[in-house]
Simulated scan of single mutants.
Amino acid sequence: MELEVRHLRVLCAIADTGSLHRAARQLGLAQPSLSTQLRRIERALGAQLFVRDRTGCRPTPLGRTVLSRARPLVDEFAAIVTETRAAAARTADGFQLRIGATVSRAIPVWIRLLRARTPRIEPTLQMNVSANALLGMVAAGRLDMAFVHEVEGCPLRVPPGLRLRVLVEREPQFVTLAADHPAASRPRVRLADLAGDRWMVDATVDGEWDALSRVLRAAGLDAEILHGDYLTAYSLAATGEVVTVSQPTALPRPDLAIRPLEGDPIGVRLLLAARTEAELDDVYAELEEAYWTVARDAPAYRAWLEDARGLGRMSGAVRAAGAGTESGSPAGAAR
């Protein structure tokens, strides 16, 4: 077996994530397939590169030596791919802008604004629940940029060379519950009001499970947390089976209520990532406008923003962007 760049990328992913499971998800592979690849690589080199135990994977001393040589090669190859794909994407008629994103109601509005203001740009969209996976795709040149969220207390793994721009430093996460839930009658919900409820979150969203578990423990609650996608979580919340975390821009339904949590214990940072500052400059204004359009269109979030502004709790960036007049109601739904 001759080593190829893809094998070196495998080694780097395992070292960066510290886990075969997380590395497989980052690379878009099944874990058994990744385990097989690692065994073949180690056989080809005639040495063990990682120590595997219950806590994950750690490079051996020889593994660290191999990684020190592999990383520059992987980065150089990624740069070649990035430059080639960028050149190929530009045509006489326009420019294809490859956008990756985690879920947000701002995305349809953002794409519409980009098309309207820069007709030569044709945005394409790739969704993924994993912000880390999207950042890796930008670094590898498979995407031009990514709009992602970073769960508080669970830092993202930002590849070297990426440029980041913060859209919102801390967006509070709300709770979604049945419209007839006793706590739904309150403008703000205390975690103690949900002591008897089961929660459901999507554990494949980077940091989501860990953040909720940490917040519930800090509140002294031993609540059951179920795993499920957010479409299922919303359906079960409507029947009173669970409550779930939601973005504040989510719109209420007749059978669901969206409420802030008292003290805003769960927050995320909203980021736009690209390889150059110029790429960020080209699209950031439209993203900012799109986000605050949907923010003001969401009743619970609009009330939270007005209350936060009145109490002086908003950051400068949020105060400037969130204080404008209301815009029309955009299409699109998100959790």
Score class of each variant (00 low, 15 high):
186 R>P: 00
79 A>T: 14
146 A>T: 11
311 L>H: 15
162 L>W: 10
234 Y>L: 13
90 R>V: 15
277 E>N: 08
141 G>Q: 10
134 L>N: 07
229 D>V: 05
187 P>G: 09
22 R>G: 00
171 E>Y: 06
325 T>Y: 08
296 R>L: 12
185 S>V: 08
236 L>P: 00
216 L>N: 03
71 R>N: 06
98 R>F: 06
259 R>C: 07
158 V>S: 06
92 A>H: 11
121 I>S: 04
272 L>C: 11
103 V>M: 13
290 A>M: 10
206 D>S: 06
141 G>T: 10
193 D>R: 05
161 G>H: 11
311 L>E: 15
282 D>V: 12
43 R>I: 07
142 R>Q: 15
251 L>R: 14
261 L>E: 04
223 A>D: 06
285 A>F: 01
259 R>M: 07
192 A>Y: 00
225 I>W: 06
76 E>P: 00
150 E>C: 02
219 A>Q: 05
323 A>D: 10
45 L>D: 05
333 A>G: 14
296 R>I: 03
182 P>M: 03
323 A>K: 01
264 D>C: 11
16 D>Y: 01
282 D>L: 15
263 G>K: 10
159 P>V: 09
3 L>W: 04
155 P>Y: 08
275 R>N: 12
145 M>K: 08
261 L>A: 06
136 G>N: 12
27 L>R: 10
22 R>K: 01
13 A>P: 07
244 T>F: 03
82 T>I: 09
290 A>S: 13
124 T>I: 12
335 R>M: 12
308 A>G: 15
